[in-house]
Design a protein around this nucleic acid. Sequence first.
DNA 1: CCGGCCAGTAACTAAACGGTTACTTGATGA
DNA 2: TCATCAAGTAACCGTTTAGTTACTGGCCGG
Lengths: 224, 224
Amino acid sequence: MGMDGSGEKKIVKRRPADRVLQRDPERTRAAILEAATKEFSENGMGGARVDAIAERAGTNKRMLYHYFGDKEQLYLHVLEEAYVGIRTAERELHIGDRSPEEGIAELALFTWRYFLKHPEFLSLLGTENLHRARWLRQSVRLKELHSHLIVELTQVLDRGKQAGVFIDTADPLNVYLTIASLGYFYISNQYTLSTIFGRELTEKTNLDAWERHIVHVTLASIKT
Amino acid sequence: MGMDGSGEKKIVKRRPADRVLQRDPERTRAAILEAATKEFSENGMGGARVDAIAERAGTNKRMLYHYFGDKEQLYLHVLEEAYVGIRTAERELHIGDRSPEEGIAELALFTWRYFLKHPEFLSLLGTENLHRARWLRQSVRLKELHSHLIVELTQVLDRGKQAGVFIDTADPLNVYLTIASLGYFYISNQYTLSTIFGRELTEKTNLDAWERHIVHVTLASIKT
DNA sequence: CCGGCCAGTAACTAAACGGTTACTTGATGA
DNA sequence: TCATCAAGTAACCGTTTAGTTACTGGCCGG
């Protein structure tokens, strides 16, 4: 909070509390991006409405086009921001700090909890895949934003193999995809699943049970 | 083929080969449904275009509204048809015929291969979940079309537990969701995954490897 | 203190969209 | 054989949509 540009000089800017809605490019830009994230994740690319985004952001279409060019570029920014979000969070994670088994469990827990906390990210992934990664593929920003997890995961698995606790055939990408699969499907398909099986999957007890299940399955699939 | 209504009576209908495109309500209806399945699975509910469906079906909008009411009802028919498709295929499956382990493996293989063969079903599931199962929930037809697999799966698991090959905590729904997760995620997210990991997931060798992986993971998670 | 630039507004436009109307064509049974 | 009704066509309609234009107002450097 309280960012006031490059170095506070002469006078402190007076900004009366009763008129917060003065000019503020960064605030407006951020508001549009947040509103767009909601709109796109709730309605997909085809269902999202530019007018709705402007209204949700408390501004108007002109600003949206001013800052982001057009609907597609705005969507791309939203998608990029979402990827940056999970990659940033991943950086806090150090799965090599403890035992290999604990490391894998930690990765599974992190992924599951991140998905659970950010359903809009899963929704955007779904939209992007519906369109065959049309925008992701043309994103220069995301091309240089790889997940470093595969590297770390490879090391953890190798340590586990040498210690004799993991099977030799355990593959890093497979482990990562397994964890992601179990988390993604449960959350993104909760509505059809709950309807068909007549069981509320988002109840606390069920969520906790699935969390334990993911860790169990992942470890069971690679343990000797 | 060769369905000619209720009982062939007096004369065989002459239908000259050089004028196939005569009146044929069933053909037109089916063509619209097929075209709609493609359009909805490729573009989602919001992105699908009624004009595009009519054109793909080789007919016009009037017929579409004639047979299905409006866009939403047409979408519901498409969704229902897709569910009927997988449920019908499931009926061929008898996972209790052999050993418990083979039964589970068979279920995993069936699910994976069905998903692989019918990506449009996965896409429709994605669209439906984006909209929080809005249409699925209001479908009377699908309410009485449960998967019988959970029942059969319960029996197979019980037999395995009694034989001492499966752990006592193995839960039918969890097993089913595990299998579905691993298949669904790999296929529906292939585009973003391939882009990010720089590896073509749909290459034959990778598909085969993942098929084996699903069976391995599923069994490893429930074996004693 | 003021000129130019940028944040912000609102009304507008052309095209696309879902859905309808007015009409034609062809099969069928009394 | 012809009245009837369903199948099928095409042009049309009102609304919504992404994107634009013409304008207002605040702020900062010279």
